[in-house]
Amino acid sequence: MSATQTLLSVTGLTKHYGAHLGCADVSFDLYPGEVVGIVGESGSGKTTLLNCLAGRLAPDEGRVQYTDRLGDSMDVHAMSESRRRFLMRTDWAFVHQNPRDGLRMAVSAGGNVGERLMAVGARHYGDIRSQAIDWLDKTEVDVGRVDDRPDTFSGGMQQRLQIARNLVTGPRLVFMDEPTGGLDVSVQARLLDLLRRLVAEMGLSAIIVTHDLAVARLLSHRLMVMRRGHVVEQGLTDQVLDDPQHAYTQLLVSSVLQP
């Protein structure tokens, strides 16, 4: 086996909602610098899985093991809430589909980006502000709008701001739930470019949930195809999309990629 340590190691993750199945027996490893896409139609359990992975939802069975910068391995669901929240504002980031869920709409763009810095102890206004401006620039948000509230921003700008807010503390692992959902096609393309560039520059690991195979192809190294709570196929992105083995993946690929 490779000597590289896994970042996230997932075994037998299962979540039910009463009689309804959320996701069942999901296992996989994520290595540093790797981007995994989770695809499937709506209701297939992608978002449930993502929330279980990110510690936002307790699974019925299974484990999610995270290895931190020091090489210490920890069970995401067994750790204390304070430890988990600390991870959420340091090593991890979560990008919501709807920027409203990930931003404070009544706080200026600068304050939104600065919050994570202040949450981990930054106490120099000038430094916080210049880092916020730097990140607005990196995410292609007009730096002149640093003091404007996000509710005056366009949807694409709000989403870029959410990304800036998440990445400012240099996380190692980013969870993304349909990051380009609800945006116009041209806006989507720009956001995808940005994400791809940032992921590459920062060497980020990411888990991206999307129903859009084009997004998955562009961003992820590996793909997991979900259907009715089960992972029906997983492998390298090109391999899964160009030579799908499972009948459901074949259907998915043919209906989406070939018009």
């Binding site: 304070s82 929240r85 919050e115």
Partner: peptide
């Protein structure tokens, strides 16, 4: 109460940040 318990006070400084920005 949870914020106090976990010493999550970043939001308090966000308010002060907003004051200075404005």
């Amino acid at each position: 109460r949870k914020m106090h318990a976990l010493e999550e006070y970043g939001l308090m400084h966000v308010k002060l940040y907003e004051d200075i920005a404005r």
